[in-house]
Write a protein that binds this DNA or RNA. Sequence first.
DNA 1: TGCTGGCACTCGCGTTGACAGAGTGCCAGG
DNA 2: CCTGGCACTCTGTCAACGCGAGTGCCAGCA
Lengths: 338, 338
Amino acid sequence: MLSERRLEVLRAIVQDYVGTEEPVGSKALTERHKLGVSPATVRNDMAVLEDEGFIAQPHTSAGRIPTDKGYRLFVDKLAGVKPLSSPERRAIHNFLDGAVDLDDVVGRTVRLLAQLTRQVAIVQYPSLTRSTVRHVELLSLAPARLMLVLITDTGRVEQRMIDCPAPFGETSLADLRARLNSRVVSRRFADVPQLVQDLPESFESEDRATVSTVLSILLETLVEETEERLMIGGTSNLTRFGHDFPVMIRPVLEALEEQVVLLKLLGEAKDSGMTVRIGHENAHEGLNSTSVVAVGYGSGDEAVAKLGVVGPTRMDYPGTMGAVRAVARYVGQILAES
Amino acid sequence: MLSERRLEVLRAIVQDYVGTEEPVGSKALTERHKLGVSPATVRNDMAVLEDEGFIAQPHTSAGRIPTDKGYRLFVDKLAGVKPLSSPERRAIHNFLDGAVDLDDVVGRTVRLLAQLTRQVAIVQYPSLTRSTVRHVELLSLAPARLMLVLITDTGRVEQRMIDCPAPFGETSLADLRARLNSRVVSRRFADVPQLVQDLPESFESEDRATVSTVLSILLETLVEETEERLMIGGTSNLTRFGHDFPVMIRPVLEALEEQVVLLKLLGEAKDSGMTVRIGHENAHEGLNSTSVVAVGYGSGDEAVAKLGVVGPTRMDYPGTMGAVRAVARYVGQILAES
DNA sequence: TGCTGGCACTCGCGTTGACAGAGTGCCAGG
DNA sequence: CCTGGCACTCTGTCAACGCGAGTGCCAGCA
């Protein structure tokens, strides 16, 4: 186990490096932090920390920089979550209140998070399968063409076109709409499949095929992995990456363009509580020099989706974690109100 | 007026520079293109072209690069629109068919355009005000809380929460829903304000305030400028910008994050026909070294929205224009079908 | 008049070498 | 176990320099 002072040295290294973006040496450390020991002592401590893999030298005779493992220790043991300042809290409220619909909420959240953390923000839309049904609407567009509209309690709206195997009368349509709603409204989407299973049987034989088609499209819409949507923003913050940013930025931008990658990224996060994945802890190669801070949010206790930020491993973890947590909480409130 | 050969020289310079990304000199020009004259002659022509402002030298004793004015002449007079190859056409069809809803269509279009042009793609959602109403839905969430859902013929769905001044009964709601729909379905959204103007009068006095509230929210939703939405993609293509990309990329990324800027950018484009804005022709400062190629698309003859790409001024104009046009046409078809 | 070859000139770029500065590792002493 | 001292290493920077690409101009030629 590392001595108290060595941990203190690691903390100082992380803080300085995050601030200056430059490898930090023993002399500079003793000057900026009152460690009460000489540079030589610090050098010895550094040598130990390096042996243990918490810090590294870019090259001989340069200062040290934290490794992923070093950041990990810092986040787990040495740093707390920095609460936001009250102007920041106010900013959150001002920014998020006045959103007119869910797209707006998600859009504002992304911008807010990006601005607050000065990093790339990702916000997942509330998952369908974890929400409850507010309403199911069926519209007739043409004799054999319907439009299905799903509305969740979180305000999410999904639509699908349906080509029917046979023309579908207006009365049958009203019938289906009513029965569908009476069965599923206020129920969880995840339970919908069971709830509608036997619905075709109660229809006239000529309509049965169409009803089945409608239901199968409805169920398709609910398939996990496919039903997830998300929004990202603040990509211009990538330019703050550091001096080596031209090299780093490309794989990150590429990763950010692939929804699948991002969904996996957020999916890896624990369902409750904040998750921090540092550097190589991220499965995706392009994100090996980034860290992801993510947390679930929801209208109640249960998370309906996740949000978070992606930034350089050299980031202000306490501040970022504070901002992410605060935003998630407030978004949860907003959703509960709507 | 410039002689035929001088134009030919300009064309050659543009083509070479776009290909190599390096200033092009007189010797290299005569080698790569059979102009039938010696380097010395080309040098004289270049001097003239430089006097006229079509090309410039980054510094003495370097080759020439086209100026914005040079690209403008190239686009207007020297280059056509390159039709896509048939594999490319097939790719468009494969990629765009199978979209399940409008979000999906727009999302696929953005990715397709980004991939085809290897540039940043922007696709505007079909404008509400230029579409027609397919359906208006009103849902009761709580005694004094409604949800308004608008559906357009292009498949776009908008939703709004409404806090009513007074509780609104289920029968009144059904009534309002029916009357609203009978008035506006199949009409253009732009005409909706007139069509619903006198609607409150036909309601009982206790419901009148609520009906007015609903209508005012409905009209708010249709305000131009606010109702526009768009999607962008292919930002990782910015890394292809060239050697000076670290400098260029930041303002561009920043501009791309501001919906307002992008909407203006597309808004400046002509309603019909393709628009190419080169370098400083773009009002926004951050985009002074980019070109924008945009075109309207729609299900019929009339454009319901625009799409386009943003890339370095040094881009393959004929190819880009071809891709943008082809994609716009096919998206139009897809919309017409849905 | 317009094209061509020749020639001197300019300028950016990459290489080289020297140098200062920062930082380390190690060692002997308190 | 900490400290001061010392030799060593590596980087970044700066100036000098030669190379090569490319130009502008001029005299000659069709």
